[in-house]
Design a protein around this nucleic acid. Structure first.
Length: 273
DNA sequence: CGCGTTTGACCGGCGC
DNA sequence: GCGCCGGTCAAACGCG
């Protein structure tokens, strides 16, 4: 796909270099690290907060926040957590998070930029009946090589954005996963990708590495490989200060267990596929 | 010729 | 009930 041509894109995965983990059926895999941009322009301070976005995923929170060490741009793998405190723990263990939010009621509403779900809170719509995850990537190309083969089946200009929205379906036989890709209406440098469904097969192409939980690289390695813990907003009752969070590997295990459980639950609820 | 993309039409849900 | 809107369909088209 286009991204594999080596054009610049700064995804949230920049900090994690996956060795050889199995492909996730839930997330797109990491783009090869050599495609990642090393020289990020310094962000305007004001854009830090603006870069927050909110996406949901069937009752769980998807968390992420700009990693300051990545220039304030998306520099972390999407991370799931059941609560903001889990998110904080993840952050405390070196996972840079992009934002956190939830669309548990599936109404598609979100406070920040990005597309609504389905036919969406703004214009109606239904609660997502399948797992759905969205994330934003700073990229010059619209379609990232995520290791799966997609067939485009529609393109639509939506009212909420001046940029057209493209619709793709997984080409694998019997796989009903869809994704929507559009440029962020607030910042066209960003591509908003929303995956809908769970792949029932392995990823294919060269991009099919996994970005399941990976340890943060040594600090100070390179500009893009340095992860600085980021503190998401926490409520007063939020427990566990970051410093008290469990070790990274423990958090990683828990995270992956959570991920797999969620994927299994989502998959079983989709047995009608 | 096969496969993928394009694009206008159509459909269904939601708000008014 | 009607109109708006997002999502999908499917025929036409382009490319290798």
């Amino acid at each position: 796909m286009a991204a594999s041509l080596g054009l610049a894109h700064e995804t949230s995965y920049a900090a994690y270099h996956p060795p050889s983990a199995p492909a996730s059926s839930y997330f797109p895999p990491l783009p090869p690290p050599d495609l990642l941009v090393a020289d990020l322009p310094p962000p305007a301070a004001a854009t830090m907060a603006d870069d927050y976005f909110q996406f949901g995923f069937d009752g769980q929170e998807m968390v992420g926040a700009p990693a300051p060490a990545c220039g304030g741009y998306d520099c972390s793998a999407p991370v799931f957590a059941n609560s903001s405190s889990d998110a904080a723990a993840a952050v405390g263990n070196g996972m840079s998070l992009l934002s956190y939010g939830v669309d548990g009621d599936g109404d598609g509403r979100r406070p920040m930029s990005g597309p609504p779900y389905g036919t969406g809170g703004n214009g109606g719509g239904r609660p997502p009946s399948s797992s759905r995850i969205g994330f934003r990537t700073r990229s010059e190309v619209d379609v990232l090589d995520d290791g799966f083969k997609w067939r485009k089946y529609g393109k639509k200009t939506v009212k909420s954005s001046p940029n057209p929205r493209n619709y793709y379906r997984c080409s694998a036989e019997g796989c009903g996963v869809k994704k929507r890709v559009e440029r962020d209406s607030d910042d066209p440098r960003y591509v908003v990708t929303t995956y809908d469904g769970v792949h029932n097969h392995a990823a294919l192409g060269p991009g099919a590495a996994s970005y399941l939980c990976q340890p943060p690289p040594p600090r100070g390695a390179t500009a893009t490989a340095t992860v600085t813990p980021f503190s998401p907003p926490r409520s007063a009752s939020a427990p566990a200060p970051l410093a008290a969070a469990p070790s990274w590997s423990a958090a990683c295990d828990a995270w992956e267990a959570q991920l797999h459980a969620a994927a299994a639950a989502a998959h079983s609820s989709e047995s009608s596929y």
